[in-house]
Design a binder for these strands. Structure first.
Lengths: 249, 249
DNA sequence: CAGTGGTCTAGACCACAGC
DNA sequence: CTGTGGTCTAGACCACTGA
């Protein structure tokens, strides 16, 4: 049975709702400081823990971000637009800086922590690439000095050992151009997109505040014969990305 | 009191980490009950609020879900695979039950709360559809009895007024087949994908536990002349979906 | 019914930011 | 230095679940 009277939400929720409303109404803008714990305590006559609870709601929603010793602030967004299909067209392979360029459209970016290792294939990589040994290129991308994406590209060891794909610099056009040189040019791609809360490790590597989900994109690249030649697992700060896919009926 | 070493994580975080590790290690499986507040209090000799804080970490990560009066449980996932491009191919329009079928692949689904309204176009809809008045079809989809998606399709009023698109039942093949009948068959689609934490309203309508992001898909459909004929805004429970996009190089 | 999580109070000490 | 958020304690009453 439904209760005929919808009972009132708890105080902390009403406060959070009111603050959220004020943010949406533009009373607080991106980066503005919100009323802090002390302000809420005196304004509403509540205990400290209750004020914290109200702010925690907004923080866990990703609407606000706390800064220690300073205050709680309205969160700012400036998403990167990432084109799913256009960016992987063959024409792109010839350009100097590989695929990543077509994402940021002029904004400065950088690559951190590039590591290249040979590993035993595990789980999804073993299944999709259908092999036992893989080369893995892991790296982190930053835009405007902020880390936004972790990526791990897996290649069948049989295919790429000895090629520039296992070197720091893959040369003009990136790994897809090199796969083409090896006679395994990708002709088809599949991307699987999920969203979830980050693991603590991802959260640390991307410097994510609480309340920020990650978008997980798992891309498989297939050569002409239908064999998978790359599996790229990407973890993106959801607040920094808009994924765009174009296709025809 | 012990004096903690400066750079050691706080107790609640260590407890959360340990529980998360136990879950990943398989000591707790999907749906299993985790140690509750009282258990953690006595096991670690901590106050109630601290035990709650530890559990809150897992809950906000979407790893665990609290059940009032019962306990805290390991969260279960059963994602639906949604095909981005294949599902919108022309062949699908002829089938009886519109596009939704190609998602669930056999699992029972239902549509709730279908409302059809004529409204003044606002924001994104006005811009993309380039019109002042729109018809909006809002509905909620459920799979296995659980709501998983909210959708709001916007159509230019000039185009669809008087057509079955403004009726409860759009007939075989759904709205895209009707747009074709009207001479505005969609030939191109763009989908924008974002992820974020839900608003309280979305959270309520989808029955989301804390720590569950939503995936926001905004699809524009374009007719032959390049004019947008539909803008469909979808909000999906991120724990229930995997989006798949296929495309060629 | 006893046990659970949900809310709330009134304190405390700490690390850190910014003046 | 003061004010901020971060952590923690020791209580309390409530609504709900499940035996």
């Amino acid at each position: 049975m439904e209760s005929p009277v919808p009972h009132e939400p708890p105080i902390y929720r009403r406060i959070a709702d009111r603050l959220r409303q004020a943010i949406l109404a533009g009373e607080f803008r991106d980066g503005d400081r919100l009323p802090g714990e002390n302000a809420l305590m005196s304004e509403y006559g509540i205990a400290r823990a209750t004020a914290r609870q109200a702010l925690a709601v907004l923080i866990n929603e990703g609407v606000a971000v706390p800064r220690r010793g300073s205050g709680v602030y309205v969160r700012q967004f400036r998403p990167i637009r990432r084109h799913g299909s256009r960016r992987l067209s063959r024409e792109q392979w010839g350009t100097g800086r590989a695929i990543w360029d077509s994402d940021t459209t002029g904004r400065p970016y950088s690559v951190d922590d590039l590591t290249i290792t040979r590993e035993a294939a595990a789980g999804e990589a073993a299944r999709v690439l259908d092999c036992d040994e893989v080369w893995v290129r892991r790296r982190r991308y930053s835009v405007d000095g902020r880390p936004v994406q972790l990526a791990a590209s897996h290649f069948p060891a049989d295919l790429v050992t000895g090629s520039p794909i296992t070197a720091q610099d893959t040369g003009p056009g990136g790994v897809y151009a090199r796969l083409r040189d090896l006679g395994h040019a990708p002709v088809h791609f599949t991307e699987e997109v999920r969203a979830r809360m980050p693991t603590p490790e991802e959260s640390a590597k991307l410097g994510l505040p609480a309340g920020t989900p990650v978008i997980e994109v798992c891309r498989s690249a297939f050569a002409g014969g239908g064999a998978a030649v790359e599996l790229n697992k990407m973890i993106m700060d959801a607040a920094s990305y808009v994924l765009q896919y174009d296709f025809d009926a």
